[in-house]
Design a protein around this nucleic acid. Sequence first.
DNA 1: AGGTGTCACGAAAACGTTTTAGTGTTGAGA
DNA 2: TCTCAACACTAAAACGTTTTCGTGACACCT
Lengths: 340, 340
Amino acid sequence: MKKKITIKEIARELDVSISTVSKAMSNSSEISKDTIEKVQAFAKLYNYKPNNIALSLKNKKTKNIAVIIPEIVHHFFTLIISGIEHKANELGYNVIVCLSNESFDKEVINMETMANGQIDGFLLSLSKDTLFKKDFHHLREVINQGMPLVMFDRTSDEIYCDKVIIDDARASYNAIQHLIYSGCSRIALITTADYMSIGKLRTQGYVNALYDAGIELDENLIVKVDKDEELDEKVKKLFDTEKFDAVFGVNELYAVVAMREAHNRGFKIPQEMSFVGFSDGILSKYAYPTLTTVIQHGFEMGEKAAQMLIERLENNDDDSSYKTEVIKTSILQRESTKPI
Amino acid sequence: MKKKITIKEIARELDVSISTVSKAMSNSSEISKDTIEKVQAFAKLYNYKPNNIALSLKNKKTKNIAVIIPEIVHHFFTLIISGIEHKANELGYNVIVCLSNESFDKEVINMETMANGQIDGFLLSLSKDTLFKKDFHHLREVINQGMPLVMFDRTSDEIYCDKVIIDDARASYNAIQHLIYSGCSRIALITTADYMSIGKLRTQGYVNALYDAGIELDENLIVKVDKDEELDEKVKKLFDTEKFDAVFGVNELYAVVAMREAHNRGFKIPQEMSFVGFSDGILSKYAYPTLTTVIQHGFEMGEKAAQMLIERLENNDDDSSYKTEVIKTSILQRESTKPI
DNA sequence: AGGTGTCACGAAAACGTTTTAGTGTTGAGA
DNA sequence: TCTCAACACTAAAACGTTTTCGTGACACCT
């Protein structure tokens, strides 16, 4: 077990000073060619690599960024992480992943432990709990300390910082329009509780699309799901009490579960009933029939967020004011809707 | 923007020495009650938190562990990461996630950048590329440097280190047995290329189970899929050329795609044809019909791996030799197989 | 008065690096 | 012979901690 070698040991072995070794390693012009060669050869032989912790302390930057997400067991989030990781690595940064598990407390703890030197900046998507509590003091704190923060997907208007979002209202508008164009007119909506901004915005798009198409809004066709456990029950109730020819789910799970129920009740899909989901995950792709969805381009979102953060880290001319980038969505037509 | 305060500044403000502040913060008995109170009050007021990088440098430990996985967009891996994160946090460690993207080169680069002080130990699942190349020098190197390494799921016999695996052969044996007990006798297998140890082991279990049940092996019923792109085609060919009453897929995707094909060809599931998958992901849960699967307990695997690594980090009495933990699997009976 | 102990604190080293500010030697120019 | 510059190198500070080893002041005992 040969331990890692340090600059100091190289200096001692070669009988030169520490500074000479350091400079030789960076090909400084102050050092003679002979010495440079000698030092670098020795360093290579003993597989010398500078200690990153020491460098971080010296440079006051770690080349690490933290991403705090509510859950990792979600296809959309894994896409985002892949995007973040890809872009960050490309720009020479490492990614530390923290999970808040949708808990406010864990989000705060994560930020506090990370903020003490471990990382140069934050990438954050708010937990449900935080959105519900509307307590953002931990975000203000890190921003005040001068640490850059970029929020993505689940953001808040109360915090001024860079953001990357998708235009949920428009995406949902397009999805509903797609259904209408394909001949549907009584469209049910399965959405989340209102404190989730995405649920709210997507509902907004639904309402607007109906309005613009001259279709009257029927509140009975809107199902709000607070917890995933009550999803099944609420979907069944919808089928029991209402008549409709299409369902739009604000995520792929809602759409797939509804489609399943339609299946069980003998509806022909998409002839008698159409389905559109949100976020193109594995469920949509392999559902039966395959599900038409709004694609959120999570990978691109991750890349963009990482890029914005790193740009801010490297151009410390923080005169530039905060930006909000909107990632475009698109609709992927599959088997669960009638072709237009 | 108030910058983070350091011990040195506290010392200057309060007109005491740096060491006094440091000791006061840790309630040292050397320091008078008065001074302790004064220092701690001041520290709290200015929200002092020790700089973790400085601590890491001093203590020669970072309380960070790296986990290198081939892909994050896989339910099983996200479960593992959740487990790792959960256990690591519980024990006071942070998790740095690196993606190898199934590439040998990226795996090597990840390990090299991490090994220079950033982390205290590695958690690793080998990339396909590495398994194919059988080049493990990067693993030997970190082990030689005295840095603990725990491998999970995709491991190699050529490396001596702690491991956490699932008993793939037995799990697959049990799955086949389940099918046989439920009345199936011509069971097709959809598996991966041989260099993937999991594919090999699961095939092994398949073969053994048939043998023990006195069913003759028919090579034509075994489909090997090299790349996911050729999956559809190979499955169709299987249905075109062979007759069978059950399919076992070595992952959930294979099983679901096969089930879908059966659906399209009008087979009644499970009466005419049964299906079992591997790894309990979202696909299995929401497939139509829902898929009976081998549950791998990824969360537990992650927890176990993290625990083994951290135990080794904290008990530097490395006299204890390497262990291999086997995570039990279980079969979750759903709609795609006949009840036994 | 001299010796001994305790208390409360401070100085300095150490972790591994980079960088600034010297420093000694050599050679050239006046 | 003196001065100056160039060269090749070194010493030391700095990043923010913790910890070891002092040390001065005071009280107590003989």
